[in-house]
Write a protein that binds this DNA or RNA. Structure first.
Length: 822
RNA sequence: GCCCGGGUGGCGGAAUUGGUAGACGCAGCGGACUUAAAAUCCGCCGGCCGCGAGGCCGUGCCGGUUCAAGUCCGGCCCCGGGCACCA
């Protein structure tokens, strides 16, 4: 027999090519809306087309494919689409480096990566492919934006960006290294620009409240989003300032009001600017603060510094004069950009006061009496007010209420709900993004582009110089006429944040071909996404923006769906040698050669088997080798099984019963691991155990066996092939055929466990004395507590440890253990 | 700095609701087959003590709750993710 015709030789390349041809001939991943069938929408975060697939993609998309293929076998109408998050900075960087237009670079990457994805055998409906840099896609984003503008949900305000004074360009946080420009090493400045914002804060309460209903999201993600939104209840209070407008501060601790010993404002606060006007050293300090890059992490890690403004404010209750300082830890973006400082009861205020010799005045004592210790830090608990005049003796709630009422009555303060969440700045001063569809008219002001004139198309055939966006430098692109008055006017030349495109693509997959509306009835059939999978690094921004967009689309009447993702799985990082794969570290493993060498199934199996999806995953060359060994072994054994002859020989009913039990316990565990727990690594471990048992059985039976044994072994392999389908779909399909079946294994029903077959007659009983393991006994599975206790006490080693001591207590956990306390 | 995770053999990990620590795999070691190698198959595999039965120790560190703690609570250390213009 030559190798070509010997099916027992495992040739992944040949098998996978043939099976993929079979799938594409039958077009079996294309789906349509079918109200008669229950739908399942399985989605992975779409990739940025950076060049070629990396292991993070391979892992992500295999996870999704396992779920999609499993659900299909459970009878669902499964949609699994794929597309491209195609706008972004890397295309501009590549354009500078290789002198190729961003569009061309992006499209050629997409073509390459599509081929790579197809080689993996993912069950995608490619007819729904979406590419965000195409006008037919971003057109609807522009359309929605003009609706939002009309509703007052999109507006302009001045906000800071990182600015390189040498390159004369805006820098992303990523392009700032140690406060310097990554290209020319110039110290980065802040620059104030008028930019577009979306009022996500209008939706803060709903975004927060709905988190409670997202019970199938990881608790960590929900907690991070809650903290990010950061709802707090407090008071906004007014402090009179000599010679200036009153200063507004926001506080969540009005109970500490009488302990305020200074006020602090942000460097960007108008009062700081006013004070700096005639104080050069103060101006220098304010200027220095403004040089810090825009990123919050950069500001928060600075040494806490400040300087007096030489201005005094009046305490609104006591009338005392208190100093006002400018401090680098006060954020202009949060609250009012000014804070009241209570060093005795706030740690940051304490450290600052200690450093600058400011007064520390305790005004809260513990509810249970006793003194607070301020020798090495603030006392930040809630308690009872002291040294607070008329408010003495009140607790937190009482003081909050009394002080709030006082300020409400005299009109110098109000209760206020505040959010840490800020409105979403969507303007980017870059070229490779969707143009913001607005027009500036000297006469009419800001005018949205009318629906009939959409999309505002980004020119793709451009010379990209690197510094300055081509649509900003081109004198003609921006020229247009005002839709309102018909006079010459200019287009907005900023483009959208790329998070805009990724905030609604999941809904567009339902109707990617609709050229008359953003969404249609098909999205009501498919949405929401039943299972969403992607990197944990998106836990806050992308997922929050997507939730926000879904609500925006609902509120303009496009859909009824309020939340886009019913169930969420956040996958961990892919590591090599204990660290994240990166070009810098030179430890990147390219999936492509791995597939060429071992086949897609082996790579998929290994990536699913070595770690649970939400944990980081460590690539190991030896590990993938092991996975390959297993697939080969499965193949060989299944082939050999088909040659097993029936003979009139003895058979062992006990062995058969054991295998039968293991078979059903495995079906049960694998089903639960995939469906509920999503721990594919333990599902595969269980499948390997069943496989190993089947292999041993096959070896033990030899060339011929009793009819009952042959039937059972055949059944076992049938089940294995189906349970393995989500993980190694090509091999599974080929073996399905070798086992004599027609059609597609993924259209075969998922095996179901028979609870009766899982019942054990005997169990192992663990016996402890004082919590330490002293014996393992085999007992009847249905033995009662008394019988278990008797059996435990009857063991010699147990008796040895009880010795002369009196038995004080016996804990019996049926089916598990007996613990004897002496 | 703030928010969220994680830390278990030589390695990746398992232990699902507080109840047998180390499933499954990788590496290693020993053996079988072979002229040989590869492939394959069998056995061993946390540390220490013991001929053995078995015993002691052991889940980042310190302390606590409990009959019982990898799991719960308090305090630390280290690593990773996010911090609004990376995607």
């Amino acid at each position: 027999m030559n190798e070509e015709s010997d099916v027992s030789v495992f040739d992944p390349e040949r098998i996978e090519t043939r099976v993929q041809t079979l799938w594409s001939e039958r077009d079996c991943f294309r789906v349509t809306e079918d109200p008669e069938r229950e739908k399942f929408y399985c989605l992975c975060m779409f990739p940025y087309p950076s060049g070629k697939m990396h292991m993070g993609h391979a892992r992500n998309y295999t996870l999704g494919d396992v779920v999609a293929r499993y659900k299909r076998m459970r009878g669902f109408n499964v949609l699994q689409p794929m597309g491209w998050d195609a706008f972004g900075m890397p295309a501009e960087n590549a354009a500078i480096k290789n002198n190729v237009p961003p569009a061309q670079w992006t499209y050629s990457n997409i073509d390459h990566m599509r081929t790579q994805l197809q080689r993996f055998g993912f069950a995608y409906d490619w007819s729904r492919e979406v590419t965000t840099c195409r006008p037919e896609y971003y057109r609807w984003e522009q359309w929605l934006f003009t609706r939002l503008y009309e509703k007052g949900l999109a507006y302009q305000k001045v906000a800071a960006v990182n600015w390189c004074p040498v390159d004369q360009t805006v820098l992303a946080n990523e392009q700032v290294e140690d406060g310097r420009c990554w290209r020319c090493d110039t110290v980065v400045e802040r620059k104030e620009l008028r930019q577009w914002f979306l009022r996500i804060t209008d939706y803060a309460d709903e975004l927060l409240a709905e988190l409670d209903n997202l019970t199938e999201w990881p608790e960590a993600v929900r907690t991070m989003q809650r903290n990010w939104i950061g709802r707090s209840e407090g008071l906004e209070l007014e402090f009179a300032v000599d010679g200036h407008d009153p200063l507004h501060v926001y506080t969540t601790r009005p109970d500490t009001l009488m302990g305020v010993t200074y006020l602090a404002v942000a460097a960007q606060h108008p009062l700081a600017a006013a004070a700096a006007k005639d104080q050069p050293d103060l101006a220098a300090f304010v200027d220095e603060c403004s040089r810090v890059q825009a990123a919050e992490a950069a500001q928060e890690t600075l040494e806490k510094r400040g300087q007096p403004l030489g201005i005094e404010a009046t305490h609104p209750i006591s009338g005392e004069k208190i100093p006002v300082l400018v401090a680098n830890f006060v954020l202009m973006e949060y609250g009012t950009g000014a804070v009241m400082a209570v060093p005795a009861h706030d740690q940051r205020d304490f450290e600052f006061a200690t450093r600058y010799g400011l007064e520390i005045r305790p005004v809260i004592e513990p509810l249970d009496g006793g003194d607070i210790d301020l020798s090495d830090g603030a006392w930040v608990e809630r308690g009872r007010l002291v040294n607070s005049g008329e408010f003495d003796g009140l607790d937190f709630d009482g003081a909050f209420e009394a002080i709030a009422r006082r300020f409400e009555e005299n009109g110098r303060g109000r209760r206020r709900v505040n959010y840490r969440l800020r409105d979403w700045g969507v303007s980017r001063q870059r070229y490779w993004g969707a143009p913001i569809p607005m027009i500036n008219c000297a006469r009419c002001g800001t005018v949205p582009v009318p629906d009939a004139d959409l999309p505002v198309v980004l020119p793709e055939d451009v010379a990209f110089e690197g510094v300055g966006s081509p649509i900003k430098t081109d004198p003609t692109w921006r020229q247009t006429t005002c839709p309102r008055c018909g006079e010459p006017a200019e287009r907005e030349t900023d483009t959208f944040d790329t998070f805009m495109e990724s905030s609604w693509y999941f809904a567009r997959y339902a109707c990617p071909d609709n050229d008359s509306a953003m969404l249609d009835a098909r999205s009501d059939y498919w949405m929401n996404v039943d299972q969403y999978i992607g990197g944990v690094e998106h836990a806050i921004l992308h997922l929050l923006y997507a939730r926000f967009f879904q609500k925006l689309m609902r509120d303009v009447g496009l859909t009824k769906t309020a939340e886009p993702f019913a169930r969420l799985m956040t996958q961990g990082m892919v590591l090599k040698d204990g660290v994240k794969m990166s070009k810098n570290k030179g430890n990147v493993v390219d999936p492509q050669p791995m597939i060429e060498r071992y086949g897609a199934d082996t790579v998929r199996l290994f990536m699913m088997s070595d770690a649970p999806p939400d944990q980081s995953f460590e690539w190991s060359d030896a590990g993938v080798e092991g996975a390959h060994r297993f697939v080969r072994k499965l193949w060989r054994a299944a082939c050999r099984m088909t040659t097993l002859k029936t003979a009139d020989v003895a058979s062992n009913a006990g062995d058969r019963a054991a295998l039968h039990r293991l078979l059903h316990k495995t079906i049960d565990k694998v089903t639960d691991d995939i469906d509920r727990r999503m721990t594919f690594n333990t599902a595969i471990a269980a499948l390997r155990e069943l496989s190993n048992a089947a292999f041993r059985r096959l070896d033990a039976l030899g060339a011929a066996a009793a009819a009952d044994d042959v039937v059972q072994l055949r059944e076992t392999f049938d089940v294995l092939v189906r349970l393995f389908q989500p993980f190694i779909p090509h091999t599974s399909q080929a073996l399905y055929e070798i086992l004599g079946h027609d059609g597609l294994v993924m259209d075969a029903p998922w095996p179901l466990a028979d609870a009766g077959a899982m019942v054990e007659e005997e169990r192992e009983l663990v016996v402890q004395v004082n919590g330490k393991l002293r014996a393992r006994l085999t007992v009847a599975a249905d033995a009662d507590k008394a019988a278990l206790e008797t059996a435990a006490l009857g063991d010699a080693n147990v008796q040895k440890f009880i010795g002369e001591k009196a038995v004080r207590k016996v804990i019996v956990v049926p089916g598990k253990l007996v613990n004897i306390v002496v």
